[in-house]
Write a protein that binds this DNA or RNA. Sequence first.
DNA 1: GTGAAAGCGCTAACAT
DNA 2: ATGTTAGCGCTTTCAC
Lengths: 339, 339
Amino acid sequence: MVNRKNIKDVARAAGVSISTVSRVLNDSKGVREELKQKVLDAVQILGYHSNTIARALKGMPTKTFGLLIPSIENPFFPSMVRGVQDEAHRNGYSVFLCNTDGSGIIEEAQFRLLLDKKVDGIILVASKYTTKYLKKENNELPIVMMDRYVRSPNYSYVTVDHSVGVRLAMDHLRTLGHKRIAFLGSKLISSGARERFQAYKRYMIDLRSKLDESLVVLGDYTYESGIKMTEELLRRDVKFDSILCGNDLIAFGVIEVLKQKGIAVPDSISVVGYDDIAFSSYYTPKLTTVHQPTYDVGQLSAKMLIDMISGVDRRVKHIKIEPSLAIRETTLRVGSDSH
Amino acid sequence: MVNRKNIKDVARAAGVSISTVSRVLNDSKGVREELKQKVLDAVQILGYHSNTIARALKGMPTKTFGLLIPSIENPFFPSMVRGVQDEAHRNGYSVFLCNTDGSGIIEEAQFRLLLDKKVDGIILVASKYTTKYLKKENNELPIVMMDRYVRSPNYSYVTVDHSVGVRLAMDHLRTLGHKRIAFLGSKLISSGARERFQAYKRYMIDLRSKLDESLVVLGDYTYESGIKMTEELLRRDVKFDSILCGNDLIAFGVIEVLKQKGIAVPDSISVVGYDDIAFSSYYTPKLTTVHQPTYDVGQLSAKMLIDMISGVDRRVKHIKIEPSLAIRETTLRVGSDSH
DNA sequence: GTGAAAGCGCTAACAT
DNA sequence: ATGTTAGCGCTTTCAC
């Protein structure tokens, strides 16, 4: 740091003009091999790094992009963020991480701030507020929606195919002989929540031509909500032999309540989670859950964004990655007795 | 975005010179109230935002800082990162998040990259590599070490007082009548790991004038390591009535193995974790653990950094926040029987 | 093929 | 109190 070298120093040391240095560094061709070498040597000796800020002022890329997520404290996101960052750093990008807490105001403010910081692109987990400020403000800035998205021919997204995830879980439960499968999920405020519930609904209708609404409770994607929803389900006094949860956090809440009520999992009731956060395999009993390839979603989102930025591939793409089912210890064949 | 306004546009619209605009925006005083108002109006109408990049080129602060942590996938960090970010955004800062994976090479490279990006300061979770590149490169850049630190009169840090944390846990166990308390922790590669082990050692020596080394196993801060260490402890065939774990992940591994071996927790063996990650209270049985105020550590680190940057308070400070004990379901009085 | 010079948007020193 | 101007470090015409 002490004495930051600039392009002038390099030019002087190499005995050439600054434009030649600039040319070499941006490998625009048309520099004699000999001079090129001199410049490269000088760069080496002086330990020169070109100043990103100055380049940015000339409209060059900042090698920086923004990542807008609801909250890094939501255990669903860390590995996705990691996927984004790993791909970013592999390509020389730094990333600004911002939390929106699901607030449209914060989301838009953060988005603006990123624009001010002259990021080369933005990856965001879309909300119902996203489209508004996006169309209001955006021009050519590459944008990728990650996980939660908004249907649009203008924006790329990478997400998980929840119809597959739900089907995997339901088939598994059916195979084990379960007939009355309850659904405790999130209110339908995000693309993922909607898709999961729709897939469940369709499955049940296919099965018995109608949806038994008493089997459904909708809340939030939290442990506390899992607890409340289970209590609500129990209060209804409806028969069920298994529960499909909207995410793993809900599942933990579910299992906790069932345990308190002396209802054994999986012996009496089978429980399936959704997400497969790291914790699900540390839990006792280990949670059977739909595995979302979150790291891959993050990585692919970043790759797509970088391709858009660099101009390698500017096309709008809509990608759904297939989830898988992690069968562990919270589901059991109906009528079996593990005791 | 479409047509980014610049200071010239504002000057023209307000009928003043660009320096007047600049003065108003940087509220250096000495501008007639009337003109000031004109400028402010023009700014409003045009929707002008000053260009951070151009300001940065003039050596002004970028309102940006770096945050260097081992990995956001480590469940210990998200809430700490959140603490940092909340404080940052409250003060108009954006933060670059970087993962080092505990590699010195990556850590140094990321650090350099942040320097290149002209961040106003850096918060980092120190490793054994940190001091080297720090003294090699750093000049006046504000630095705060967060959680893990390196003793130095030159660098501020914010961390948790592990001697208190360990004592809280040990006192609790002793109060419940436990005498042979095993310690499964991390190898002594970070300040936190060293302090926790030292505190345990001191406690045991105070208790029976020597440390029984057969009660100690050192590994990593992971679930898998928790499993391995427990198996090792069991293999030694040494008597113990309780286990203090270096972190919660280890504790989950411990409990899993004990369960597999048919050893009841807490009925036969009490287990205490360390960290109190969110998951600890979702776990069954809910984990008794030392609560680290991670959010506060992050928030305070950011506050200190911002104070240093803004010049409000440039002093080097060494702060240790006190942890507390979250008593839950994995510890029990010796001889009680919950059945 | 190479260098001189303009200019990105801004701040601050200097002039008035 | 306000305007004019140099210059931050770089890229990119434009001359040669």
